[in-house]
């Protein structure tokens, strides 16, 4: 029998994997990958809570997930544009080497 706990635990695991990627990897694009995974985990939570709530606030979870997906697309576009700009400037996307505040 599937319960809310299953989804919440999966979502927590997905979030943690994304977090580990963000904190441990050096490459800017992999960091973005981690952020996307964390956002997906959040969306999963929204939909799970929407589906398993007793008397659901109509569609609030679904709407939140939809808006979150759209915002994530904007975030990815700007984030990747930043990565490209950084690469053009520093010739690297290694975050350990991009630590200077002065161009």
């Amino acid at each position: 029998m599937l319960t809310l706990n299953h989804f919440l635990l999966l979502s927590a695991a997905l979030f943690s994997v994304g977090l580990a990627g963000v904190l441990a990897r050096r490459n800017a694009i992999v960091v973005l990958v981690g952020i996307e995974l964390m956002l997906n985990a959040a969306n999963l939570n929204f939909l799970a809570f929407w589906r398993f709530s007793k008397n659901p606030e109509p569609l609030a979870g679904v709407m939140f997930a939809l808006f979150s997906i759209a915002v994530a697309a904007a975030e990815a576009a700007v984030g990747l544009a930043l990565v490209i700009a950084i690469y053009r400037h520093c010739r690297t996307t290694n975050l350990d080497q991009v630590d200077s505040l002065k161009g």
């Binding site: 927590a12 963000v22 441990a24 990897r25 050096r26």
Partner: peptide
């Protein structure tokens, strides 16, 4: 492959998962 402080990062992530 990983940044200098990767162990800290992975531990933090594991800790977060544990708490959650």
């Amino acid at each position: 492959l990983v940044s200098k402080s990767w162990l800290t990062g992975v531990s933090i992530a594991a800790l977060v998962f544990g708490c959650l």
